[in-house]
Design a protein around this nucleic acid. Structure first.
Lengths: 340, 340
DNA sequence: TTGTAGGCGTTATCAG
DNA sequence: CTGATAACGCCTACAA
């Protein structure tokens, strides 16, 4: 006997209660199959031993974990937090546990996490966007793990997606602001490689340019990492270069807030000297001064629906159809007509 | 044969490569133990079959998962994000995978997640703060799962902790601001039940009051949920009630930003009409206008050290000693001498 | 260098 | 209602 005893097992409980392991197992999984008196003995044995079922063993036996994994690009800001919270709550209602992991916006890291989660028996996976190596999807399919993409909707994507149309949302926002008369416009975007959200938003802005009598080529786009500082720097470069824009579209609220800080550092007034827009409508958008014009996204609804759909895919082995949600433009103080 | 074949197993690979399962296993875990030619055959068999080891089975066999779990109160804001990111990076260097789960600031939820993570074989756990039911610690100890508390440091806590002294940090901040001459001061705190960080910060503020010739009882404290809106509402209530404070200490930056919004809604100027302070120094603090006076916390360093320590506890079965980190007050524009 | 075989903790199928 | 016992997929002495 070492001073380092292993945690109690089913067997220990069975021995302590004077029954077989099968009976203990039944007590745990289908209590009404066992008589009241034995059940009591077993329960008390469980309690005194402090027994907890070994998950891996159970998993091996039933091939189900009631665990869902989600891999998000970053936890560093609130973009995914709210939707994920709703996702988790809904999963919980269905008896599932959510495990989250972050890829730091790196494709290889994401792939590693996918494998890690699958290996650990995740019954299903939630990924952000649908832009990734086909090989990963093949792998997932071989492993028969249902996957759902969120924060983007594209009926033609390789996997079912639930979210909104980033392109048309950005087009709507851009159109509305262009209507105020801006002609010199630039965009600060997150890196668009392997990021469909970023890419679609850029496309949406370009389309709006065309539709408003401007040339898509005139939209000067700079891509940066997802970070307030990067947004600020990019903005300052933009504003101190030639052909200074009167409108700076930002691929998301975080970059937009960075841009606003950049404006402050440059002594520029928003929106008098320059208009700035964001995307996502996270809390931050209403905290800055002036408040940010942006696109509102139904985070919680998306999380909830994603959970429902994923559970359905897992339990009924359905294929999942995805769903498009509505987003809408929110006009706030950060935009105005161009000066002069 | 269904059209729903199970994923390939070690056995399938062994058969395909014409070797035993032991050899395949060795190829995976200790390649140099097997001859080059057989290794090649095995590797190609693995590739063509798309084999991935079954984690649960491996776990059962070796009782190790190289997985660490972290349970944080919320993902809704950046407080824990940065430290967690560093934690994850450092774990990765040591070959561990991080799985995160959020408790929404609810003790029962946290307990559930702890069990979920332990059951799934987490080799170690990171928790936030040390304030929780002793029964949970007993459980963890029975299961022999090393646990480390972060974002708080208390050498006398039930588990090793790594972080800073919330009480003295808040005392330092309060003292410094009281030095400007404030006498009517209130505090907006997160709920302090089962939250040592919140409790210690309140205590710190009280101590500072005493030390500066005021009575600790004169610190009016309101406790709210962790949310910008709640901060704004609490602030407005405070400022429209009797004995309006000239200084509002906030338990964290999020509440402080809420308070600032409340001030704006009330038409009050910060810091001319009222001084506001935060705690944590998250990015938000520098984005608002005026920037927030707050306590800077070494998030990344904390995450990194926590990872190192936890890995050490796991691998060397050491007890873990914890570590206190330095925090420091950052004076910014949100405070000033009281008017008149 | 390789193969054999026992065990890890549960669940599930059969008898009793 | 309860008890044997065979999986589940992998690792690792121990043998060869």
């Amino acid at each position: 006997m070492s001073d380092h005893p292993a945690p109690p097992t089913l067997d220990d409980v069975a021995r302590a209660a004077g029954v077989s392991t099968a009976t203990v197992s039944r007590c745990l999984n289908d209590p009404k199959m066992v008589s009241a008196p034995t059940r009591e003995r077993v329960d008390s044995a469980i309690k005194t031993l402090g027994y907890t079922p070994n998950f891996a063993a159970r998993f091996m036996a039933v091939q189900r974990t009631f665990t869902v994994g989600a891999i998000i690009p970053t936890m560093e800001n609130a973009i995914f937090a709210r939707g994920l919270q709703a996702f988790q709550e809904e999963l919980h209602h269905h008896g599932y546990t959510l495990l989250v992991s972050s890829s730091a916006y790196q494709a290889e890291a994401e792939e590693e996490q996918v494998r890690a989660l699958v290996a650990r028996g995740a019954d299903g996976l939630l990924l952000i966007g649908y832009d990734r190596d086909q090989a990963l999807y093949d792998y997932l399919q071989r492993q028969r793990v249902p996957v759902l993409a969120a924060w983007s909707f594209d009926p033609d994507a390789a996997i079912p997606s639930i979210g909104f149309d980033n392109r048309s949302a950005m087009r709507a926002l851009t159109t509305q602001v262009l209507g105020m008369g801006h002609t010199r416009v630039a965009m600060i975007s997150a890196h668009s490689a392997e990021n469909d959200r970023a890419r679609m938003r850029i496309e949406g802005a370009r389309i709006a340019m065309e539709q408003n009598g401007l040339s898509a080529d005139d939209l000067y786009v700079v891509e940066v990492s997802y970070d307030i500082n990067e947004g600020a720097e990019a903005f300052k470069t933009l504003m101190t270069g030639p052909n200074r824009p009167s409108l700076v579209l930002c691929g998301n609220d975080v970059l937009a807030v960075g841009a606003m800080r950049g404006a402050a550092e440059l002594g520029l007034s928003v929106p008098d000297d320059v208009s700035i827009t964001g995307f996502d409508d996270i809390e931050l958008a209403q905290v800055v001064t002036p408040a940010l014009t942006t696109v509102h996204v139904p985070h919680r609804q998306m999380g909830r629906l994603a959970a429902q759909q994923l559970v359905d895919m897992i339990e009924n082995k359905t294929d999942g159809v995805g769903k498009e949600l509505e987003s809408h433009v929110v006009m706030r103080g950060s935009v105005a007509e161009p000066r002069s």
